[in-house]
Simulated scan of single mutants.
Amino acid sequence: MDCKWVYKIKRDQTGAISRYKARLVAKGFRQQLVTQQWPLRQLDVQNAFLHGDLQETVYLQQPPGFADPKQPDHVLCCPGYGPLSYFLGIEIIYKNQDILMSQQKYIFDLLQHAGLSKANPVDSPITTAANLALGDSSQCADPVKYRQIVGALQYATISHPDITFAVNKVCQFMHSPTENHWAAVKRILRYLKGTATHGLLLKHQSSSILHAYIDASLPTLMALPG
Rank of each mutant, 00 (worst) to 15 (best):
M1W: 00
D2Y: 12
V6S: 05
Y7I: 07
Y7F: 14
Y7S: 10
I9P: 02
I9C: 11
K10G: 04
Q13C: 02
T14P: 02
G15W: 10
A16T: 01
I17H: 05
A22G: 13
F29G: 12
Q31W: 05
V34H: 08
T35W: 00
T35A: 15
T35S: 15
T35D: 13
Q36T: 11
L43G: 15
D44S: 12
Q46A: 14
N47C: 09
L50Q: 15
D53V: 14
L54P: 02
Q55D: 13
E56R: 07
V58P: 05
V58K: 05
Y59C: 13
P64V: 08
F66P: 08
D68H: 06
K70R: 14
L76C: 14
C77V: 15
C78E: 13
Y81F: 13
G82Y: 10
P83E: 09
P83L: 06
L84Y: 05
L84K: 06
Y86D: 08
L88F: 09
E91M: 06
I92Y: 04
Y94I: 09
K95M: 14
K95R: 13
N96I: 01
Q97T: 12
Q97G: 03
L100V: 04
Q103T: 02
Q103L: 04
Q104I: 00
K105T: 02
Y106F: 15
D109V: 01
L111V: 10
H113D: 14
G115N: 10
G115S: 11
L116W: 03
A119F: 00
S124N: 11
P125S: 10
I126G: 00
I126H: 06
T128C: 05
A130Q: 05
A130T: 08
L134F: 03
S137F: 04
A141Q: 13
A141S: 14
A141V: 01
V144I: 11
Q148T: 09
V150K: 08
V150Q: 11
V150A: 10
Y155K: 07
Y155H: 06
A156Q: 03
D162V: 01
D162M: 05
I163R: 08
I163G: 08
T164W: 00
T164E: 05
A166H: 03
V167N: 04
V167P: 05
N168L: 01
Q172I: 00
F173T: 04
F173G: 07
H175D: 11
S176T: 02
E179W: 00
N180G: 15
W182N: 11
A183E: 11
A184Q: 08
A184L: 10
V185R: 04
R187E: 06
L189Q: 02
R190N: 09
K193A: 10
K193Q: 12
G194T: 01
T197G: 01
L201K: 07
L201M: 09
L202G: 03
Q205G: 15
S206Q: 15
S208Y: 00
S208R: 10
L210N: 11
A212D: 03
A212N: 08
I214F: 07
A216Y: 11
L218I: 05
L221M: 13
M222S: 15
M222Y: 01
M222F: 12
A223D: 10
A223R: 12
P225Q: 07
G226Y: 08
